[in-house]
Amino acid sequence: MLDTGFTSGWLAINSQDLEAIEWPIVIPKIEMQTARGLKYFDLYEGKVIVAGKEFIIPVHIGEQLPDILLGSLWLDIMQLVVNKPKGILTLEVVEADY
């Protein structure tokens, strides 16, 4: 889910989803303001592939996240195109210098 309110991050996932991924922890217990109040997240170094390109990004790991959240920082390097009549949402990499 693209969360445009998640302005200070790239990706947030539930801690139970982290078990299958061997990403190194960078900073434990960061306090962040969320729609549900102040919550604590651990920050990991994640490697993700988007549109065939590999990115090393900080990933926020928290409890009780029902969805994987894409933060609005992706919009700094991607173009978001919405075609509502056709029900198509597209993210395209336009700047890959990250």
Rank of each mutant, 00 (worst) to 15 (best):
G52D: 01
T34E: 06
L70F: 15
P58G: 02
K47Q: 15
S8G: 10
K86N: 05
F41G: 01
A51F: 02
E19A: 12
H60V: 04
I68T: 14
S15D: 13
T7F: 04
L73K: 09
G62E: 06
Y98F: 15
D76E: 13
L73M: 11
T4A: 06
I21H: 05
D3P: 10
V81H: 00
G46M: 13
T34F: 12
A20Y: 13
G87P: 09
E45G: 02
Y98D: 00
P66V: 13
V59E: 04
W23R: 06
K84W: 09
H60R: 04
V81I: 15
G5L: 07
N83G: 01
K53T: 11
Q33A: 04
E45K: 13
E63L: 06
F41S: 01
K47I: 15
L69A: 06
T90C: 01
K53H: 14
L11P: 11
V50P: 02
I30L: 13
P85C: 07
Q33G: 03
L38G: 00
W10R: 01
G37C: 08
E31H: 02
I77V: 14
H60P: 00
K29M: 08
D76W: 07
A35W: 12
V48S: 00
G87L: 11
Y44H: 15
E54G: 00
E92W: 02
L91F: 15
T34D: 04
E95Q: 11
V48Q: 03
V94Y: 11
T7P: 00
D42A: 05
D76R: 13
E63C: 00
L69R: 10
E54D: 02
K86Y: 06
Q79S: 03
W10V: 05
W74V: 11
L75G: 03
K29P: 00
G52V: 11
I25Y: 00
L43F: 11
N14E: 12
K47N: 11
A12W: 12
A35L: 15
G37A: 09
D67N: 12
Q64C: 02
I30H: 02
I13Q: 09
K39W: 05
T4L: 04
Q33D: 09
Y44I: 13
M78N: 05
I88Q: 10
A35R: 01
L80A: 05
M1L: 13
E54R: 10
I68D: 03
Q79L: 07
E45T: 13
Q79T: 15
G9D: 08
G87F: 05
V59S: 03
I27A: 00
V81R: 02
G37D: 07
I21E: 07
K29R: 11
L65S: 04
I49V: 15
G46V: 14
G37I: 15
R36C: 01
Y40T: 15
Y40W: 04
N83M: 05
Q79W: 02
I21W: 08
L65F: 05
D3W: 15
R36Y: 10
H60W: 13
K84L: 11
S15Q: 14
V26T: 10
N14R: 03
